[in-house]
């Protein structure tokens, strides 16, 4: 069949959701943020939630997330997104509220806000992007940086005795009675992306059904920070990140 015959409106099987804005994202080529942003937007569109969803963006690379998903947004101070989300959801329980946070934001400076929001049964969705490095500030060590992994503030590799151990915060929040669904996914292959979308949908459905906190970690690449090509970064993530941060549902009540 001729290509011109195929490229027709009625043959579209995949296109940008209208909930994503047309703004070109500021991320580096191959950044996982773009994929997860898109999935969140697709879930919001498919569930018809655009008019009632309020997002809370973090400090970190995704600080400008509000430029990309066409919903109402609040931009939080570093680590405080779960506290903002608590205020929003408690005062507007009929709205759908989610936070989107990186590892430094959620698992270092915002550890208390994360744990206590999850432990209070806050009926919100927490999306956690874990790429093991501080991307925005230029590749410093994160709470989730692997032992031996190099970063600009551990240039010879993270040494736990000196730099502390990587924090598996997702396993910690899974133990809290306030969480209903805790999962760890990735976006390195088409199948993984489709799976991540499925769990995001489930997380938003949990909120609509008033089931407490749903926590979705996405193990992600930061190819600039890791100093690799995007494709190589995906391979490195599979070989090194997944053994320490294994994928799958950790808790599903």
């Amino acid at each position: 069949m001729d290509i011109k015959e195929i490229i027709k409106e009625e043959n579209i099987v995949y296109k940008k959701t209208s909930v994503l804005t047309d703004k070109v994202m500021h991320y580096c080529p191959g950044c996982t943020h773009g994929v997860v942003h898109k999935l969140v937007a697709e879930v919001i569109e498919e569930m018809g939630l655009q008019e009632k969803t309020i997002g809370v963006s973090p400090v970190g690379c995704s600080v400008f997330l509000y430029d990309y998903i066409d919903i109402d947004w609040q931009e939080a101070a570093h680590g405080r997104a779960p506290a903002l989300a608590t205020g929003i959801k408690r005062l507007m329980p009929d709205k759908v509220v989610f936070t989107y946070q990186g590892d430094g934001d959620l698992a270092a400076i915002g550890t208390a806000e994360t744990i206590h929001a999850c432990n209070r049964d806050e009926n919100i969705v927490v999306i956690f992007i874990n790429n093991g490095i501080y991307g925005m500030t230029g590749g410093q060590m994160a709470p989730t940086t692997l032992p031996g992994m190099k970063a600009s503030t551990c240039p010879f590799g993270r040494e736990p005795g000196q730099d502390g151990h990587p924090l598996k915060i997702t396993e910690i929040v899974a133990q809290l009675p306030g969480t209903t669904f805790v999962t760890r996914q990735a976006c390195h292959t088409p199948a993984a992306v489709r799976k991540t979308k499925k769990v995001l949908k489930k997380a938003f459905e949990n909120q609509i059904n008033k089931r407490g906190t749903s926590f979705v970690e996405v193990v992600a690449t930061c190819n600039s920070g890791w100093k690799m090509s995007p494709v190589k970064a995906n391979e490195w993530m599979e070989e090194n990140m997944f053994p320490f941060y294994p994928l799958g549902d950790i808790k599903d009540i």
Binding site: I6, I12, Y14, H33, G34, V35, C187, T189, V193, R194
Partner: peptide, 20 residues
């Protein structure tokens, strides 16, 4: 027309078509 490329694209710049 499997759409794998569109699904993984971080910049959502691929539209995929598949003939019926």
């Amino acid at each position: 027309g499997c759409a794998n490329c569109g699904v993984v694209c971080p910049d959502t710049c691929i539209t995929v078509y598949r003939a019926k």
